[in-house]
Amino acid sequence: MEATVFYILAAILLIGTLCAITARQAVRAIVYLVVSFFALALMFYLLGAPLIAAFEVIIYAGAIMVLFLFVIMMLELESPEKLPKPRFSDWWPALALVVVVVGALAVLLLSHVRAVPPGFTDIPVRQFAYTLFKQYGVAVEIVSMQLLFALVGALYLGRRK
């Protein structure tokens, strides 16, 4: 049952992403992406990471994507039809690279299939929190500082002269 849900979510995720990258307008791409991120969040939940799932929805689908929307609106870009679209000549190196990467990864993955019993263990939030604040306390501090720097930098870049 859960496996079925997983595969459905995977399909939504991949299709949503595909639509996002081929969308003609940035706003539409954002909306497609929000859909696929929701699917991703559910997958996280299925993989026993409810906290990450929540953060995915809140930070990614919520904050970051909305930030993108804000910026798109702020820029007051001309009508979307005038924006240069990727031509075929732009796509084919991308496609070639994608094929190469996917092929290589497929080879690597399939060659490493082991008889591991397919089973996932849930990680309780308590364990997650312990690991985060006890083992990786310094990392948390550093990340918080980095966020501060990003804040200052964004303010500096965005100020009007």
């Binding site: 859960e2 993989l47 796509w91 991308a94 591991v116």
Partner: peptide
């Protein structure tokens, strides 16, 4: 849940490849 790890990885790698393709193809729009 009984999904093999390799399936998750395949989904992830496909998604990664799509992101890569997007970055390379959409040079007209940052």
């Amino acid at each position: 849940m009984s999904v093999p790890l390799s399936h998750i990885l395949i989904v992830a790698s496909l998604m990664f490849a799509m992101g890569l393709g997007c970055v390379i193809a959409w040079r007209a729009n940052v």
